[in-house]
Structures are given as structure tokens and as C-alpha cells.
């Protein structure tokens, strides 16, 4: 009697292990946070001997999307995986609610105000003053807006809440 057909290989890493690996892949535009922090990895599962990773785009025209897919694939190959399939998942649409607490803290440390439901930054990421004003609804990348602190006078990026 043959048992070879669907037996997973003994070296197949666990899904938890893979999430950990992906949490070490930096966002190409904001390298202090990982792709997992950003909330764009929507699923990791083994389908037979193929690892399927579901990725959702932040903004539909975000030019980093292709690089992100390449980075995921490269990282997983570096860990010895060779059968990988990336799926783009647009529904449900990405929301900044999926950003991790760890990611939000790292953003602020880096000088980018994390997204707030109120629609604007809570405080200046530099001096923590709440006296901030919007310069432009758009910023250096599709996901950011341009703000300025009225106390320390530093301009800063605000990660838009969507």
C-alpha cells in the first residue's frame, strides 16, 4: 500500500515559523516596519507542498507592490522554500486598522505619525506637541500626508488613515 501521495515533507516549516520570517521582511519604502506590521500579508498556508501567501496592496497604484512581492519571494527562498505562490487579494480592502501596535510605535520612533481614526496625527512624532497643522493631503508616497509641527517647526509625514 502506497502512502507517498500527500505526505508533507518532514522539513516543511510551520505556518507560525513562516509568519516570523515574513515579519523580518522590511517594507521597501518605510524599512523600520515589516510587511506583517503593515498588515498586508493576509494569509499563509500550505497547499500540498506549495506555500501560498496572500498579499493585499495598500493603494491600488502603489509602485512598491511589485518590489514587495519580490522581497517576499526572495526571503522565503533564502529560508530554503522553493514552491511559493503569491496571491493578490484585494477584498476585503486594506485598512490601516490592520497595522500592528509594534508597527505604529516604530513608525512614530522613525518620525512618521501613525494613522488615527480622527483623520490627522495625534501629535508631532519629533517633540510630541499636539499643536500640528496640515501642509498637504498628500505626501512623499501614496500612503502619507504632509504635516508640520507648530512648536518645533519640523515638517513630518503622517500615515493616512484608510
Amino acid at each position: 500500500m502506497s502512502q507517498v501521495t500527500t505526505q508533507p515533507s518532514v522539513e516543511q516549516p510551520s505556518v507560525d515559523q513562516i509568519w516570523e520570517w515574513l515579519d523580518a521582511v522590511p517594507d521597501p519604502e518605510i524599512p523600520v516596519i515589516s510587511l506583517v506590521d503593515l498588515g498586508i500579508i493576509r494569509g499563509v498556508e500550505w497547499q500540498g507542498d506549495t506555500l501560498v501567501v496572500a498579499v493585499t496592496p495598500t493603494y491600488s497604484g502603489c509602485p512598491a507592490t511589485a518590489i514587495i512581492n519580490l522581497d517576499i519571494e526572495t526571503a522565503l527562498r533564502d529560508h530554503g522554500l522553493d514552491k511559493i505562490r503569491l496571491e493578490t487579494k484585494i477584498a476585503p480592502a486594506w485598512t490601516t486598522d490592520w497595522m500592528s501596535e509594534k508597527g505604529r510605535a516604530k513608525l512614530e520612533e522613525y518620525g512618521i505619525a501613525p494613522p488615527q481614526a480622527a483623520g490627522g496625527p495625534e501629535r508631532c512624532p519629533n517633540c510630541h506637541s499636539k499643536n500640528v497643522t496640515r501642509v498637504s493631503q498628500f505626501g512623499s508616497t501614496p500612503c502619507k500626508a504632509h504635516w508640520r509641527c507648530q512648536d518645533c517647526l519640523e515638517p513630518f509625514d503622517y500615515f493616512k488613515c484608510i
Binding site: 493603494y59 497604484g61 498637504s136 498628500f138 504632509h146
Partner: peptide, 20 residues
């Protein structure tokens, strides 16, 4: 400059939607 960036970002969103 701010308007330039805003227009470019708007265009980028629209092109992204076009791809879909």
C-alpha cells in the same frame, strides 16, 4: 510642490484602479 505631489498621487491611484 505640494500640489505637484498631490496631482501625481491622484494620477497614481487612478492608474492603479485602471489596472484592476
Amino acid at each position: 510642490l505640494e500640489e505637484d505631489i498631490a496631482l501625481a498621487n491622484t494620477a497614481l491611484d487612478l492608474i492603479g484602479q485602471t489596472q484592476m
